[in-house]
């Protein structure tokens, strides 16, 4: 009987190990390279896109915005609100560490705090201002489930938004499918689900995203990329806060 029990335990452990065993190629270098690819996938260089962002919260009407976005590099973006009509003409500029909002009724742009929620969504301004992860996080692959691998990102310093990010990545398409964001204490704060991967500009990119707020039941924001086109260049003035009224 004891032998049978021991055999069962050994078999279960072996099965578990087999299930989560890592291919030898998933070493540190592979993880770092994969993270850079993911960065490129999520933060393309120069492009124009349009997307809808709809936030759902329990007991409230969905809050929907449509944006037209011009991006240059990983840290410069200009977002123009296309709808709803009451907010049309407002612009949000992300330039490095700085975020600005321009409202047609107010002559000067207003500086936004990085920690504030972005337009009532479950994204913080900081989430949107993020310019990629490779520079600020160490990557390590810790699990594998078929073609999915778990990339664990650990902050290199305490000056970044999240202490740890656990990101499931489709190793074939090199795009993330899910990312869970952890605070300094190790508790999960938000979860992002990526879907609808499409090839744009030579790279597969997830066009739909859903950011779930883990500290408010039923609160999430859906982002759907409607169009995305690579541009040769974008005028530099577009990312100058003093020119936001143009």
């Amino acid at each position: 009987m004891k032998k049978l029990l021991l055999f069962t335990v050994v078999m279960l452990l072996a099965a578990g190990a087999g299930l989560f065993a890592l291919d030898a190629k998933f070493d540190k270098a592979y993880a770092e390279k994969l993270l850079k690819t993911v960065d490129k996938s999520l933060y393309p260089q120069i492009f124009k896109s349009s997307l809808t962002m709809t936030t759902f919260r329990n007991g409230r009407e969905p809050l929907a915005y449509k944006y037209e976005i011009y991006s240059k590099g990983a840290d410069k973006s200009l977002m123009k609100i296309v709808s709803p009509a009451r907010d049309k003409g407002k612009k949000i500029l992300l330039n490095g560490d700085n975020l600005w909002m321009y409202m047609p009724d107010v002559s000067r742009p207003i500086r936004l705090s990085r920690k504030q929620a972005f337009m009532g969504s479950t994204f913080s301004n900081e989430d949107l201002a993020s310019s990629g992860w490779a520079d600020n996080y160490n990557a390590e692959i810790t699990q594998q489930k078929g073609t999915l691998i778990l990339l664990v990102l650990s902050a290199k310093n305490r000056e970044v938004a999240y202490a740890k990010i656990e990101m499931w990545i489709d190793d074939n398409a090199k795009v993330p499918t899910e990312a869970v964001y952890f605070g300094l204490s190790g508790k999960a704060i938000k979860k992002m689900e990526f879907s609808n991967p499409q090839t744009i500009g030579g790279l597969v990119r997830p066009l739909d995203m859903k950011m779930v707020d883990l500290i408010e039941e039923g609160a999430y924001t859906e982002v759907k990329m409607l169009t995305m086109e690579e541009l040769q260049s974008v005028p530099e003035y577009m990312f100058d806060q003093s020119q936001m009224g143009r």
Partner: peptide, 16 residues
């Protein structure tokens, strides 16, 4: 309850 705040380095933090 859960308490959420940010650290001096602007890192998000959530505690029980």
């Amino acid at each position: 309850v859960l308490l959420f705040s940010q650290t001096v380095g602007n890192m998000n933090n959530l505690v029980d």
